[in-house]
């Protein structure tokens, strides 16, 4: 059965132009951003994060404006016996917004501002290093397969089987001893580097696994075959074709890794193998505050609530990001 052209007039080859307006298309990334903008939780947690990061970044400026440094001691505001802050709620006053530390008499607010700086720096740096190693290993394992995959997967499984906390506890002291001996003061930068290295050594495996799985599902897709059929090399396929499709899982795992490192760093510092006093740090502060839980309960309150807010905001934002990047997963 065929119809003659006179009736169904010669049909132009071209499709009718799509109805939507505008010539520049909206990329999947832009669409995700629009969805994120519409999400109230994402906006509130995002703003909280932005605020906390600005505070951390501007710590020296805040010190100047506030007029008190993190190492200044106000012993005169402590009781003679027990060295407990005078006044209410741990010595909260117009000069010392969050009160002062028992024992040392240092200002809690400015120490928290600097502590935020330490925490966020270590967490972000660890997450970046983790993502870098994890993504590279995951892409290579997923795309190349074969023995590369076997080796990387074996290392991944091995690292996942190691108990993180015990390993961290066991390694920190010997490493410090090896470089500085028992008498020398261990510089802060060294402790920070070791912390980041420990986090990275343990953290990259989950990112690598995630990326590997994604790459395996993408590698058989026809657009990869199209690139291969045009003579594209390995670099083009890995970084031009595959990587842009991995941003979503990488971003999500990154944004969920950061809060994990914030609490991880606080935990290690609490155990005394991370950042130690007098360097301002949340873990170290909470560790110190435990001793004053009965005599000065306000001391634990401010660092505790801030770290809680920071981690919660990061986690909520990470979840919202996942929903925005992959709207099908949640609905």
């Amino acid at each position: 059965m065929s119809l003659s052209p006179e009736v169904l007039e010669p049909v132009p080859v071209a499709d009718a132009a799509p109805v939507e307006k505008g010539v520049v298309g909206r990329s999947p990334g832009q669409l995700a951003w629009t969805r994120l903008r519409r999400d109230r939780t994402a906006m509130i947690s995002g703003c909280t994060l932005l605020l906390l990061m600005l505070v951390a970044l501007a710590a020296p400026l805040i010190e100047v404006l506030y007029g008190v440094g993190p190492h200044d001691e106000f012993k005169e505001l402590l009781t003679r016996r027990g060295a407990i802050p005078l006044g209410y709620a741990g010595g909260v006053s117009a000069d010392h917004w969050f009160g002062i530390e028992p024992g040392t008499g240092r200002d809690i607010f400015i120490r928290m501002v600097y502590g935020l700086r330490t925490s966020i720096f270590i967490a972000l740096a660890s997450a970046l290093v983790t993502a870098g190693i994890g993504v590279t290993a995951g892409i290579l394992a997923g795309y190349l397969g074969g023995w590369v995959d076997t080796v990387i997967s074996w290392i991944t499984d091995f690292a996942l089987a190691l108990p993180f906390l015990i390993f961290a506890l066991a390694i920190m002291r010997p490493v410090e001893m090896r470089f500085y001996g028992p008498r020398d003061e261990v510089p802060v930068w060294f402790r920070v580097t070791v912390l980041i290295a420990i986090f990275a050594a343990f953290g990259w495996t989950s990112t690598a696994r995630l990326v590997r799985g994604q790459v395996i599902s993408l590698r058989e897709r026809e657009f990869i075959e199209a690139a291969r059929a045009s003579g594209a090399g390995l670099g083009h396929i890995l970084f031009r074709q595959l990587l842009p499709n991995l941003w979503a899982p990488i971003l999500v795992s990154f944004s969920l890794a950061v809060p994990a490192y914030v609490t991880g760093e606080a935990a290690l510092s609490f155990l005394g193998i991370g950042i130690v006093d007098p360097t301002p740090d949340f873990g170290a502060m909470i560790f110190r505050s435990i001793a004053y839980l009965q005599t000065d309960p306000a001391y634990v309150f401010f660092p505790g609530i801030t770290i809680f807010a920071l981690v919660l905001a990061f986690n909520l934002f990470g979840d919202a990001l996942r929903d925005a990047l992959d709207p099908k997963s949640s609905r």
Partner: peptide
């Protein structure tokens, strides 16, 4: 080569 699946054969990004 031209592929079958018009969805899988174009890089969405």
């Amino acid at each position: 080569i031209i592929f079958q699946d018009p969805y899988a054969s174009l890089n969405p990004r």
